[in-house]
């Protein structure tokens, strides 16, 4: 249990998707105008990451990895399909995003309309594919670790987008130099937030 918690906390704070790896910046910058929509998108990202990372973990370990097919019959022990990784992962992600879209449309039409184009774009949110690729690179030992990594990364992304949205709502009343307004100042604030998050670096749990 302890190592799951460890991975969970680590992926929220130390390996934060936004501040340490800059994944999912496109929707992060574009949707963070108001807190409400960014919370909605953040929750959707947590959900999608929490599903796709474990599913892709199973795919990696039972279909794609070298020798992973040997559970069907020993003669497949030499098959290595890892070159198909990208295409399989993205297919799973696109399917899951479609599912989430249908669920949100059914249960929360207001959220659905406010997220607009960005819901289908979760499929091309780098944070989602990045989560699966990091999962593959770091060789998590079992499904539980993959689940806690996926959820943790999602929560980290959620915190980041909620934070920047709150700051952007406030900064509207400040006198920012005209060329920096909008995009420029958002970059710089994100950089400063990233420096703040770096204080978590090196913490051993």
């Amino acid at each position: 249990m302890e190592e799951y918690l460890n991975i969970f906390v680590k992926s929220i704070f130390i390996d934060n998707m936004i501040f340490a790896y800059f994944l999912g910046m496109c929707s992060y910058l574009a949707v963070s105008r108001t807190v409400e929509t960014s919370v909605g998108l953040g929750l959707a990202v947590i959900f999608v990451l929490g599903i796709t990372v474990p599913v892709n973990y199973l795919l990696e370990n039972f279909v794609l990895g070298s020798g992973a097919l040997s559970w069907i019959s020993p003669q497949f022990a030499n098959v290595d399909l890892s070159f198909l990784t990208f295409i399989m992962f993205i297919a799973i992600i696109a399917a899951m995003v479609q599912l989430v879209e249908m669920i949100i449309e059914k249960f929360s039409p207001t959220l659905y309309s406010s997220l607009g184009i960005f819901l289908p774009l979760i499929a091309v949110n780098c944070a989602i594919l990045g989560g699966s690729l990091f999962m593959q690179e770091r060789n998590y030992a079992n499904l539980g670790e993959a689940v806690s990594f996926g959820l943790g990364s999602g929560v980290g992304w959620f915190l980041a987008i909620a934070g920047i949205a709150a700051i952007r709502e406030k900064i509207r009343y400040s006198n920012v130099p005209a060329p920096l307004r909008g995009l420029g100042i958002t970059y710089i604030i994100t950089g400063l937030m990233g420096i703040a998050f770096m204080s978590f670096m090196g913490i051993e749990l």
């Binding site: 501040f19 340490a20 790896y21 800059f22 130099p177 005209a178 060329p179 920096l180 307004r181 909008g182 995009l183 420029g184 100042i185 958002t186 970059y187 710089i188 994100t190 950089g191 400063l192 937030m193 990233g194 420096i195 770096m198």
Partner: peptide, 26 residues
């Protein structure tokens, strides 16, 4: 460190928009 990339891009945007006032986000 990673955060400085963001600040560098922010400054590039600043310079670019300062030279092209029509791009400024109103």
């Amino acid at each position: 460190l990673p955060p400085m990339a963001l600040i560098t891009v922010g400054v590039i945007i600043w310079v670019q928009r300062n030279n092209n006032p029509e791009l400024v986000d109103v």
